[in-house]
Design a protein around this nucleic acid. Structure first.
Lengths: 204, 204
DNA sequence: TAGATTGTTAATCGATTAACAATC
DNA sequence: TAGATTGTTAATCGATTAACAATC
C-alpha cells in the first residue's frame, strides 16, 4: 500500500530537481544533504526526510550522486515520460507561454492551442498550431491530451474546465483568476494577483 | 510589539480578499465564517483564527459585514494605498503582463517597462511606456519605485536583482526561473515550471 | 580502519481544528 | 429573550528538526 505524500513535500520536489539539474550542468558529481540544504536554505534533515519518502537514494559516508538523484526526481515527478497538453485561450498570456515556456523541460509536449479569434487561428508558435475552438472537442477525442492549460477570461473558466474534464483531461493548469474545483481532477493554480498581493503585504 | 504573522496565514489573505470581493459584487452584505469556509473549502475555525490575527472584524450572532471585511483585508494587504512598480524585460511574458495584468487591482501602479531591444523601446502598452534599459538607473533614482518585476532571461537575473535593490527597490516579483535571495528584501517567485511539474506529479 | 554521511526514530515545534464562554 | 456566531483558549494533528545507530 502506497503511503500518501504530503503536499508540502511534493511542492519542494521541483525545486530540488531544478537545483540538482544546475549542479549537474556545473559538473558536480556528488552532493551531501548538508551542502544541498545550504544551497537551498533548508535543513539537511528535511531534505533527507523528503527524499526518503520515495527511497534511499544516497549512500552513507558519500552523499548523493547528482546524476542519479536527478533521474530519480524526474521519475518521481513523472517528467521522464512525456505527457501531452493543449492550451486553451491564445491571448497574451497564452501566446507568451506558447512562445517561451519550456514544456519539454517540465515533462510535457504541447499538441495545440485553441482560440475563437480569427486573428490567431491558423498561426503557429514554436511549431505548435492554433486551432479553431470549435474543433476542440473532436481534437480532444482523437488526441486525448493529459492536461489542459486554461488561459481564458475568468467568466468562462468554470464552463471550459468542465468541458475539458468531460473530454477526458486528467489535470488542469489554471491561469484564470478563479478557484476551480473539480472532484478527482488535480488543478494547479497560477494566481498572479495573489502572488503580487503577498508581495504587497511583505513590502510594507 | 507586533507579533509576526505566519506565512501560511498571509498566503491565504489574497484568496479571502478575492472571494469577499466576488461576494460584494454579487450584492451579498454579510457572511459567516461557516459559509465562507464552505465556499473556500476551509474550516470556519481557520478563517476566524486567520482574521483574528489582525483584529476582530466580525460580530457575534451576525458574522462579517462583506464591505467592511473587504476594506479591512485591502488595508492589511496594503493594496489600499497604491505602490509603484517597474517591469524589467519586455519579452513575451513582460508584454503579456503589461497588456493584461490588472496592476491597480493588486495595489500597484506600473510606471514603466525597460528593455534593451530597439523593437520595443518607445512602445506603449496600456499607457505605459517602454524605456531604454540604459535609462533605468536614472529613472529609479528619480521615481523610486517600490518594487521591480523581473521578466528577464535567467542568466542575468541575479545581477539585475542586485542592481534594482541597490537602486532602492523594496521588493521583487520574480518571473525568472532562479531562486533569488537578497537579505531583507521580500521576493515573490512565480516559478511556472515548478507549478507544472507539481501538476505532472499529481496527474500520474 | 576512521571519517563522513546516510536512513530513520524520537523530540520539538507550529499550524489546524475543536470547543465554548462571551455577546450581538 | 433565544438563537446565532464570534473571539479565543485548549486539544490535536502534522510537519520540521534533532539525534544517532547503521554503514559506506
Amino acid at each position: 500500500m502506497e503511503k500518501t505524500i504530503s503536499t508540502a513535500v511534493i511542492k519542494r520536489l521541483p525545486r530540488y530537481y531544478r537545483h540538482i539539474q544546475d549542479l549537474e550542468k556545473a559538473g558536480v558529481f556528488r552532493i551531501s544533504s548538508k551542502d544541498l540544504a545550504n544551497k537551498l536554505g533548508l535543513t539537511a534533515s528535511q531534505i533527507r526526510q523528503d527524499l526518503n519518502c520515495f527511497g534511499g537514494f544516497g549512500q552513507q559516508g558519500y552523499g548523493y550522486n547528482v546524476t542519479n538523484l536527478k533521474e530519480q526526481l524526474a521519475e518521481i515527478l513523472g517528467i521522464d515520460k512525456s505527457k501531452t497538453a493543449v492550451l486553451i485561450g491564445v491571448g497574451n498570456i497564452g501566446k507568451a507561454l506558447m512562445k517561451n515556456f519550456d514544456f519539454e523541460g517540465s515533462g510535457f509536449k504541447l499538441l495545440a492551442g485553441f482560440d475563437t479569434n480569427p486573428d490567431v487561428i491558423g498561426r503557429e508558435f514554436e511549431g505548435v498550431r492554433v486551432l479553431d475552438g470549435h474543433e476542440m472537442k473532436a481534437f480532444m477525442q482523437k488526441n486525448k491530451p493529459d492536461i489542459a492549460i486554461l488561459t481564458i477570461p475568468r467568466h468562462i473558466a468554470a464552463v471550459v474546465a468542465k468541458d475539458v474534464v468531460d473530454s477526458g483531461v486528467r489535470g488542469i493548469w489554471n491561469f484564470t483568476n478563479v478557484d476551480l474545483h473539480i472532484e478527482n481532477v488535480p488543478i494547479e493554480h497560477v494566481h498572479l494577483s495573489d502572488s503580487l498581493m503577498t508581495l504587497c503585504y511583505n513590502v510594507e
